[in-house]
Every structure is written in structure tokens, then in C-alpha cells.
Design a binder for these strands. Structure first.
Lengths: 143, 143
DNA sequence: AGTAACATTTACGTTTACGTCAACGTTAGT
DNA sequence: ACTAACGTTGACGTAAACGTAAATGTTACT
């Protein structure tokens, strides 16, 4: 179990950001000491990193991230009462909703991936042009 | 030449955003009508799209984007006085600086690309698991 | 036992990236 | 010639994502 500063270092977030994320209901430490210090598990840290990646890579707002995760949690809850067939159709509905949003997110990611690849190619082209230019200049100077 | 609303539609930015970018020195319309209306060329639009992509994909702040582009412009300026060998070493210095920042940006992009690919894989896995689960549930309901 | 380094909550402050009027001029269609 | 739709420049407002300071308690070391 880690205290907040450890987690801040591990995740490269500030302590304030961690508390803020908790305030939004995005991440919660698994426990507290008797005196009230937050205690995070490795699992908590992994979760935080996932949130951070979603923010950085998908470019989603913290609210959006929360909504995605709440959807997942709602399903996990339903999953619990496994043996109540009564709720099978309800499960199916939720699952379909979850599938929809996930597929949408996936498509956004795919789109970003494509654009990123293009952009990277552009950078590489520019870099080789610069390298050539540098060689030219170095020759020019030598003389 | 397009007026601002056209450009807003083409780039999927608001008119306010376009003016704001201009205020920051990020993008300027190539011309104005006699009465003061902004006029953008296709080249301007392409530039704006590049800025937008850099913001969305690299996740850079508008200030950072400006700094990157200013560096490029500084080089373009030096490039102008092509025949003054006197400045060859100065060119080389600027070029090396430019190369450095570009390479850094490239590495960030590469890193993001890798993480994005991972994340995408994660989504796909989750989606196939959900699809299976749905099939299960559908069977269960039929009976 | 003292103290430096860590933690807590509360609350106000700040930056970025625009949104939203207001007051006013321009363009274009009928 | 009128009017709707578009443009301009201020200038103030705002949401998100924290930063920062204050007041206070806790750990841990010497």
C-alpha cells in the first residue's frame, strides 16, 4: 500500500490531481489509515495510469472518462447477481449499450492512430530533409 | 479565398477559435477585403488543420505549438538570404536547434502511437469478450 | 521530546481555450 | 431602399483542471 506521494511519483501526476480525480469519483484509494491517510494498492495505481492514458491519448475530458467507467461499473454490478435469469434481458440491454460506447471509443482511437501515423511520417520526412541540409552546410563551412 | 465562416466549416473550428488562434499569432488569413473581412486561402486552411491536428494528437498547448512554428519560421527567414555565406554557421546552429525539437516531438508522437496501439488492442479484446457474452445471453433468453 | 516532512480538508486563485454579448459596419438578395 | 445574414473589434464571462495557501493533525527520526 502506497501513500499519496509515492503514487504521485509513480503516475507522474501531482498530489492535487489525485485528490481532484477522487473528488470527481474517478479513482479512489482502496483504504485509509486510522488517521485518515490515503492508501493505494498496485491495482489502484494501474487504474490511475489507465485514466491518465485515456485522458492523454483519447483526449477525453475527465467527465467523459467518468461516464465510460460508470457504464462499466454498472455492468459489473449486474454481473454480480449471476443467477437471476430474470435480469438477463436487462443485462443484455446494458451490455449492448456498453458495446456501443466502447465501439465508438475504439473508432475514435483508430482514427487518431491513423492520423498520428501520417503525422509521424511528416515529421520523419522533415527530419531527413533537415539532416541533408545540415550535411550541405557543414561541407560549405569546411571550405 | 474563403471568408471566416467557410473556414470554420472546413476545419470544424468555431469562428471565435479562428480569431483566437490569430490573436495568439498561430494562424493569419492571407488577406483582408477592403472593408476588413478576413480572407483565407487553401494554404491557410491546410495550415489551420495542421495546427488542429497538432493540438488534438500531440496534445500540445497552443503556446507550445506557437513556439514550434516560430522556430520553423525563424529558419525560413534565414533561408531567405541564401547567398550570404557569412551566416552559414548561424544557419547550422538554428537548424540543429530545429532538429532537436523536431526529434523530441517525433519521439513523443512515437510514444503516443505505441500506447495508442496498446490501448486499441485492449478495446478490441474487451469488445470481443462482450460480443461473446451477448451471444451467451441471447441463447439464455431464447430458452 | 522536539522537529522536519508528510498528511488532511477547506477555500480561494489561476490558466487555457474559448463562449457570449454589445455596438457597429458590410454584403447580398428582394 | 430595406432587411437578413454576415463581418468587425472590444470586453466580460465561463468551464475544466488543477495550483496554492491556511489551518491543522500525523509520522518518523534524532
Amino acid at each position: 500500500m502506497y501513500r499519496i506521494e509515492e503514487v504521485a511519483k509513480k503516475t507522474n501526476l501531482t498530489k492535487r490531481a489525485l485528490r481532484y480525480y477522487e473528488e470527481l469519483g474517478l479513482v479512489s484509494p482502496s483504504g485509509r489509515t486510522e488517521s485518515g491517510y490515503r492508501l493505494y494498492t498496485d491495482e489502484d495505481v494501474a487504474h490511475i495510469l489507465h485514466v491518465k492514458n485515456t485522458r492523454d491519448l483519447l483526449g477525453a475530458s475527465l467527465q467523459e472518462i467518468k461516464e465510460i467507467m460508470d457504464l462499466g461499473k454498472r455492468y459489473e454490478l449486474l454481473k454480480q447477481d449471476y443467477f437471476s435469469d430474470k435480469h438477463a434481458s436487462e443485462k443484455l440491454r446494458l451490455l449492448t449499450e456498453l458495446e456501443g460506447t466502447l465501439r465508438a471509443q475504439r473508432d475514435v482511437l483508430q482514427e487518431k492512430l491513423n492520423k498520428l501515423a501520417d503525422m509521424l511520417q511528416g515529421y520523419d520526412d522533415k527530419l531527413t530533409r533537415i539532416t541533408n541540409k545540415k550535411r550541405e552546410l557543414e561541407k560549405e563551412i569546411e571550405e
